[in-house]
Design a protein around this nucleic acid. Sequence first.
DNA 1: TTATTTGCAAACCGTTTGCAGAGAA
DNA 2: TTCTCTGCAAACGGTTTGCAAATAA
Lengths: 135, 135
Amino acid sequence: MESQRNTKQKQLILSILKESNRPMSINEIYALVVLQVPKIAKSTIYRNIDSLLNQNLIDKYHLNDNEVFYRIKADSHEHKHFIICDDCKKVFDLPSCPIHALENAMEEEGFIIKEHLIQISGICKTCAKGHTKGQ
Amino acid sequence: MESQRNTKQKQLILSILKESNRPMSINEIYALVVLQVPKIAKSTIYRNIDSLLNQNLIDKYHLNDNEVFYRIKADSHEHKHFIICDDCKKVFDLPSCPIHALENAMEEEGFIIKEHLIQISGICKTCAKGHTKGQ
DNA sequence: TTATTTGCAAACCGTTTGCAGAGAA
DNA sequence: TTCTCTGCAAACGGTTTGCAAATAA
């Protein structure tokens, strides 16, 4: 891996993700960055996001209506429980995992739940037979 | 809505989805369709998929590595609990929802679980205040 | 016969890449 | 000074669209 330079563009992107502390789309990030660096190109944001991913400072998610979101990495482990607003399309973290208690808590806090989705991934029986390919 | 014609292309696409009975990507569908209709264009598949979606015969999901999947509609309600193979990238339905028991069952059946994701969507507090927009 | 559907090619749009100049170290 | 990063413009790839020929009804 090459050495990394600290440009104001990269610092700005990182600080936006840190402050929002929720998954953001490229367009959300761009809208905020462009206020402070009016001539910034979207490719610069894509490249910096890529660099932050490689540095393991942020995570990437494919959520909702096929949009891609990035979020500052959680302290301990990757947090992958989201709540998505059907209206404004923003994505928020869920406080915890157990689903039923959690839904009740969400509703008490004023979020109107429409549906939930559970996604589990790993290696299926067929593929597990074929190879021991760990990663 | 206009009248719908039953072309062999559309019948074929629908029957492929019915037989597989799991979420399939456009490319998976295309690979099977092209065997029987060699000159078919992908745009024809996209258009037929769109028509089947409008007819409420199939569902659409954005899963895994930003891929889009389509699956024949379940009898009762929309089934949105998937299990995804990290290796072959195929997507299968989960038999039921409650997550812990389910993970145990999956592992007993030989699926190696790497991670799971819970996604809940609805209307956030802020948006709920603004408007009473039901859909 | 006639209106919808098809195959083809071009357009579209989010993302990626090549490149010369700007800027960090 | 040197080498990475930026802004710009063009390329890329999955999806959509326009159009004339094919086909279901």
